[in-house]
Nucleic acid binder design. Structure first.
Length: 440
RNA sequence: GGCGCUAUCGUCUAGUGGCCUAGGACGCAUCCCUCUCACGGAUGAAACACGGGUUCGAUUCCCGUUAGCGCUACCA
């Protein structure tokens, strides 16, 4: 049975590149009906921190990459490494240097392995110096612990970034010294920044959690990440997790580094936003609004700010298809949910500060006042009626109204905006704009 | 520097010797839809790094050049 693992070290948050590695491992395990294990490589006593561990775990859960069985910690498996290293010492395959134990590397030998994506890779041991197995502090090195553990857990495929290609031969030498059979190695291409060097902070956010905070959806993230260094073939691009699992095979993994393109991620997230049901979006919106004090409690007064979820849901439905992220939707709906209308100066200048606009808005407000069943259709009927009477195009009423009510010249179909904004708020804002903002 | 890996539109990629006047997607441009923006639809500009082979025929196979990246820690 296929058995793979994701082995992060808790010395930082979950990097986008690591998340993609975890995803490929998970996808492969699910596709093969195998197991996906989680192992924490906390052998760097100084840099490993519990808070990082928590964040990595929560990021994996957010993505939905659930692992099988218990989480393994290398720091709790020291006996194993000690035992293995003692064996090598007794067999004269390693030697002591101070407190450190070092593996002897015989020079002039060709180490070859068959990589699942690169094919045959070989290197002369002349290029490899003796390898530290156990550090002076009693902890195993990465390569040593990795080999011992992967073997102990019966890992069949090691899927990891191709920055590990160079130390694979070293690990194979460790397997050999221990008399163990190495797993199949599968080195996947690195995720790159726009300058084609490995993705790092200076290229933008690399913390997966950052994308969650910005309101990206996990399904979109999974879809986007899966297409970095892998493709299902043909023209398909939007694939559900189920489809991904069904299609994912190692032989379709590419060899070239992939630039992380935020614009494409953003596009893809909008595609998912539009398709995502309200019951998923509502809690996310709630969380974001709560943070801003728009819902539950008002920021200053401590006063309870209760909103009707059905109403918020209606707002979400009218905005989700044009929102790039949840945060973007929050930005767009500020004028709906709060009385802080984010007036855009240019919009005000071109749509409100024009001759005759004040009178029109006031007239429209008067018409709206008479509507008893407040909905998009009635607001639209009133608008078209008034426009006809004033002998102007409906657009000449629509545009100023949008700016007066939302502060912006862009947004959803006006009458749907008015419907969700509510009668009272709409009329109040029209009158306010007519009174002051429209002054030419 | 040494070693390794890689090389298709700006970006993600399809392509495994003829189906390629190289396909899709993002981004960009124009147009349509339209109350604006977005969505959607249509159209367009945009790539096989270079040089040798192999072959009747190379984007696809081989070699070299160039370029990029990675590794070269008692970090992982």
């Amino acid at each position: 049975m296929v058995k793979v693992r994701f082995a992060p070290s808790p010395t930082g948050f979950l990097h986008v590149g690591s998340a993609r590695t975890a995803l490929f491992n998970w996808l492969f395990a699910r596709h093969e009906g195998g197991q996906f294990l989680l192992r924490i490589e906390d052998t760097d006593a100084v840099r490993s921190k519990n808070e990082f561990l928590d964040e990595i775990i929560s990021s994996l859960k957010w993505l939905g990459l659930h692992w099988d069985g218990e989480v393994a910690f290398q720091s709790k498996r020291l006996d194993l490494y000690r035992e293995a290293s003692d064996k090598l010492l007794k067999a004269d395959k390693a030697y002591l240097d101070g407190k450190a134990m070092i593996l002897k590397i015989a020079p002039g030998e060709l180490v070859t392995f068959e990589d699942a994506v690169h094919g045959n890779i070989s290197i002369n041991t002349l290029e490899i110096k003796d390898q530290v197995l156990m550090k002076s502090d009693g902890m195993p090195t990465y390569s040593f612990a990795c080999a011992v553990d992967d073997s102990a857990f019966g890992i069949t495929h090691v899927i990891r970034g191709d920055d590990h290609i160079s130390n694979t031969p070293k690990q194979i030498l460790i397997y050999r010294a221990l008399g163990l059979t190495p797993p199949t190695f599968c080195h996947i291409p690195l995720i790159l920044g726009t300058d084609r060097s490995r993705l790092s902070k200076r290229h933008g956010a690399t913390n997966l959690n950052e994308y969650r905070k910005q309101g990206f959806l996990p399904e979109a993230m999974i879809n986007f990440l899966s297409l970095l260094g892998w493709a299902p073939g043909g023209d398909r691009e939007i694939l559900s997790v189920e489809e991904l699992v069904k299609e994912f095979t190692l032989d379709r993994i590419g060899k070239t580094g992939a630039v992380f393109d935020l614009a494409k991620l953003t596009w893809m997230n909008n595609q998912y936003m539009a398709k995502t049901p309200l019951e998923t979006l509502l809690p996310l919106m709630h969380e974001a609004m709560k943070e801003r004090g728009w819902w539950d409690f008002s920021a200053g007064s401590g006063q309870a700010l209760a909103l009707d979820p059905a109403w918020v849901g209606k707002v979400i439905e009218t905005y989700k298809s044009r929102s790039e992220t949840v945060e973007d939707m929050v930005r767009q709906t500020e004028g709906i949910f709060t009385d802080n209308i984010p007036f855009d100066e240019q919009a005000v200048a071109s749509r409100l500060k024009q001759p005759g606009v004040a009178e029109r808005l006031k007239a429209y407000a008067d018409r709206l006042e008479k509507i008893s069943a407040w909905e998009a259709a009635s607001a639209e009927a009133a608008c078209r009626e008034l426009a006809a009477e004033l002998k102007i195009k409906p657009a000449e009423l629509i545009h100023p109204t949008r700016v007066a009510v939302t502060g912006r010249s862009v947004g959803p179909s006006l009458f749907h905006v008015l419907e969700v904004a509510g009668k009272e708020k709409t009329i109040k804002r029209l009158r306010a704009a007519a009174g002051t903002l429209c002054a030419v």
